[in-house]
Amino acid sequence: HRQALGERLYPRVQAMQPAFASKITGMLLELSPAQLLLLLASEDSLRARVDEAMELII
């Protein structure tokens, strides 16, 4: 289940942060499945989480 969510998330994360897409997707997969579904449904929520992840990385 998580694998399938990751496969759906990755291209969207890659479009926002290509250099760190794998790392960010891995970080996002730590969230609950319900939270992941919310990110897939909301571009704004996904962008906010990706921005948060980038702050942790750099």
Rank of each mutant, 00 (worst) to 15 (best):
H1W: 03
H1Q: 15
R2P: 13
R2G: 11
R2D: 15
Q3F: 03
Q3H: 09
A4K: 11
L5H: 04
L5P: 04
L5D: 04
L5N: 04
G6C: 10
G6R: 12
G6N: 09
E7T: 08
E7I: 07
E7Y: 03
E7N: 05
E7S: 07
R8D: 09
R8N: 10
L9A: 02
L9S: 01
L9C: 03
Y10Q: 04
Y10S: 04
Y10H: 07
Y10L: 08
P11F: 09
P11Y: 10
P11I: 13
P11W: 08
P11D: 15
R12I: 14
R12T: 06
Q14F: 12
Q14S: 11
Q14N: 11
A15Y: 05
A15I: 08
M16L: 14
Q17V: 13
Q17M: 13
Q17S: 10
Q17R: 06
Q17I: 14
Q17Y: 15
P18C: 04
P18A: 04
P18D: 04
A19Y: 07
A19D: 13
A19L: 09
F20R: 02
F20E: 06
A21M: 00
A21S: 04
A21T: 04
A21D: 01
A21N: 00
S22V: 14
S22A: 11
S22F: 11
S22E: 14
K23R: 14
K23A: 15
K23Q: 13
K23H: 08
K23N: 05
I24K: 00
I24E: 00
I24Y: 00
I24R: 00
T25E: 01
T25M: 14
T25K: 02
T25L: 13
G26M: 13
G26A: 13
G26V: 11
G26N: 15
L28A: 00
L28R: 00
L28D: 00
L29V: 06
L29I: 06
L29R: 02
L29A: 04
L29S: 04
L29Q: 04
E30M: 07
E30D: 09
E30S: 10
L31G: 04
L31K: 03
L31Y: 06
L31M: 10
S32P: 13
P33L: 13
P33S: 14
P33E: 15
A34N: 12
A34W: 07
Q35N: 11
Q35P: 02
L36P: 00
L36I: 13
L37H: 10
L37V: 11
L37T: 10
L38S: 11
L38F: 10
L38C: 07
L38V: 12
L39S: 03
L39V: 11
L39I: 12
L39D: 04
L40P: 00
L40A: 03
L40I: 08
L40S: 02
A41V: 13
A41R: 07
A41C: 07
A41M: 14
S42P: 01
S42C: 06
S42D: 13
S42K: 06
S42R: 05
E43M: 07
E43G: 05
D44Q: 11
D44I: 09
D44N: 09
L46S: 00
L46H: 00
L46C: 02
R47P: 01
R47D: 01
R47F: 04
A48S: 10
A48M: 12
A48V: 11
A48H: 08
R49Q: 11
R49N: 05
R49C: 09
R49K: 12
D51K: 14
D51T: 11
D51F: 09
D51Q: 14
D51M: 12
E52S: 07
E52T: 08
E52A: 11
E52L: 09
A53E: 04
A53K: 05
A53N: 03
A53G: 02
M54C: 04
M54P: 00
M54E: 01
E55F: 08
E55I: 10
E55L: 12
L56M: 11
L56Y: 14
L56D: 08
L56R: 13
I57V: 06
I57F: 04
I57D: 01
I57H: 02
I58Y: 08
I58L: 15
I58F: 11
I58R: 11
